[in-house]
């Protein structure tokens, strides 16, 4: 009987992490940014129908970077979790915090127990009401979870985008146009190419809307915002 090779746990984790990071860095970046009426989500996405940003629940949105099939699965699981909770208890009991915790658990378990870690990085954001602040959680491939303020970046050259944004984000919350311009500039600067509106996926969680706050903007509507 052949003996399996011995690999130290440190080595194994490091290899897995490197593998996952490489997969995530291959893609493009996604930015979530707080603005006056809620949270703006912007992503570079050449496809108009395969979304990276989507609605989870009334006040909660999801964005995934990395391997599409993997974060799509996570997105669906999140919607199921949210709808189940909202149906079992009440709509206001569905929170981004519990959702982010669940994602963190799942990603962490997969990272440590499976051969292949998930090559994804995800964002779960929730807008606050009646004086409650917004919440933005960034969850990595290994299940680590980071609570972000003002803006959050995942996927691609996220460190570079983060650095570019950090200098320019104003102390006061920007309006939608200003926030979108900031995001586009940051994406352009790090991508070293001109962004076309057709390849930009834009959505918001808008506090002023009724019931379901998520809204996707078409490229024509995006143009209007920037005008």
């Amino acid at each position: 009987m052949p003996m399996p090779y011995y690999v130290s746990p440190e080595q194994m984790m490091q290899d897995k992490a490197e593998y996952a990071k490489k997969g995530i860095a291959r893609g493009r970046s996604i930015i979530a940014m707080e603005y006056v009426n809620g949270i703006l989500l912007a992503a570079e996405n050449p496809s108009a129908s395969l979304h990276k940003i989507s609605e989870i629940y009334d006040n909660i949105a999801f964005a995934g970077a990395g391997k599409y099939s993997e974060f799509e699965n996570l997105r669906k699981a999140g919607i199921r979790h949210a709808d189940l909770k909202g149906f079992m208890y009440s709509r206001e009991d569905v929170t981004a915090r519990s959702l982010a915790n669940g994602y963190s658990q799942s990603l962490g378990t997969i990272f440590s127990q499976e051969m292949k870690p998930l090559e994804v990085e995800i964002l779960v954001v929730q807008i606050g009401h009646n004086g409650h602040s917004n919440e933005m959680y960034r969850i990595s491939f290994d299940g680590s979870i980071i609570d972000e303020r003002q803006f959050a970046v995942i996927g691609g050259k996220s460190d570079a985008v983060q650095a570019a944004l950090k200098e320019k984000v104003p102390a006061q919350l920007p309006d939608l146009k200003a926030a979108l311009t900031l995001c586009m500039n940051a994406l352009e600067q790090t991508g070293n190419q001109k962004l076309s509106l057709e390849s930009l996926e834009v959505a918001v969680l808008d506090r002023t809307r009724d019931n379901r706050k998520f809204r996707r903007y078409t490229s024509a509507e995006t143009k209007q915002i920037l005008a």
Partner: peptide
């Protein structure tokens, strides 16, 4: 693989999911 957060379910119907 069974995880609390990723039930092996692949259907767009919430009713079937509950069932």
């Amino acid at each position: 693989m069974k995880l609390p957060f990723l039930p092996n379910h692949d259907d767009a119907s919430f009713f079937d999911f509950l069932t």
